[in-house]
Design a protein around this nucleic acid. Structure first.
Lengths: 151, 151
DNA sequence: GCACATCTACTCGGATAGAGAATGTCCGAGTCTCTGGGG
DNA sequence: CCCCAGAGACTCGGACATTCTCTATCCGAGTAGATGTGC
């Protein structure tokens, strides 16, 4: 149960983009320098966020990335699932139906209790991440850290 | 955010061990055949559970594994963290202190908002997993599936 | 019949390969802007 | 003075290495029980 490092990058970049004027794009180079990240690798994560519909990408001079929605409408969960891929966390292999004491399928109409517990936990995790939006994170920044993204 | 496959194995094995008479050990071979798992690989996870203090291992004939505590006192979270290693899910790299608009350390006495959101989410996940014990999972099994672990 | 030494068979544990994903990097395709010339 | 064509520079996107974790496997160390022998 480990979270990819790119998640941190993605959320911070979303926070940075939320502090720009509407309609202004920020290049990945500026974002990378803002946090001293590898520009080439950051590109990978930004692309994932574009594919997920969180960012809009524009090429050419004065191009770059900008949010597709107001930061109040983007949750941390959105970013995490965009970067991580959002696939299922736990894949139940139904091992209860295998082996010497395998259960017959009619006994398995209900889902495996293990899978239920795992899914409930993941749902609690997702729910917690949904409770925080990018706008919330901006509001929690120290005053000295707001609006510091160089033009 | 993916969960190791061995977690499923570990939980199911714990459920199986919970259905044995107290003081009786079950060999890893029996457990592997019970669910048609790879015996050699299962050994790795069982060993992890022994190191975590969930299982007690005994060698020699009629040896094997048994639970160190009653199943009511073993939560799913215990098993998950035993198998997965329980390390931190999200490692904040404090990238807010790096780059062109780095924050000075005195602005970072409070934790990074991103890390806080991640930790809260993980705590919600852990709390959900703690709510279910191995005994609960045994109780939820179909009647036909209980006590079917061959001696 | 009983006690003891030995021996066997069974158990777990650590060390060792292979596959897949995450990480990190590079170069090419596309497009907006700026510049220079002509009308 | 205005318009247009071209060049240039800047941007993102996809294809290519490298490292690390998870998966999978094997063989050796140790121990409890069974066995055979002597008293």
């Amino acid at each position: 149960m480990k979270l990819s490092q790119g998640v941190e990058w993605g959320v911070h970049c979303a926070v940075a983009l939320a502090q720009t004027a509407p309609g202004v794009s920020v290049s990945r180079r500026t974002l990378a320098e803002r946090y001293a990240l590898s520009e080439a690798y950051l590109a990978k994560h930004l692309k994932a966020m574009v594919s997920a519909g969180l960012l809009y990408a524009m090429t050419g001079p004065n191009g770059g990335f900008r949010l597709t929605r107001p930061p109040e409408q983007i949750t941390v969960l959105d970013v995490v699932e965009a970067v991580e891929g959002g696939g299922p966390q736990f894949v139940c292999q139904e091992i209860r139906q295998r082996g010497t004491a395998a259960l017959s399928p009619e006994h398995c109409l209900e889902r495996c209790g293990v899978a239920i517990a795992m899914d409930e936990a993941k749902e609690a995790w997702r729910s917690s991440l949904s409770a925080t939006t990018i706008a919330d994170l901006v509001a929690r920044l120290p005053a000295a850290a707001r609006g510091r993204l160089g033009t």
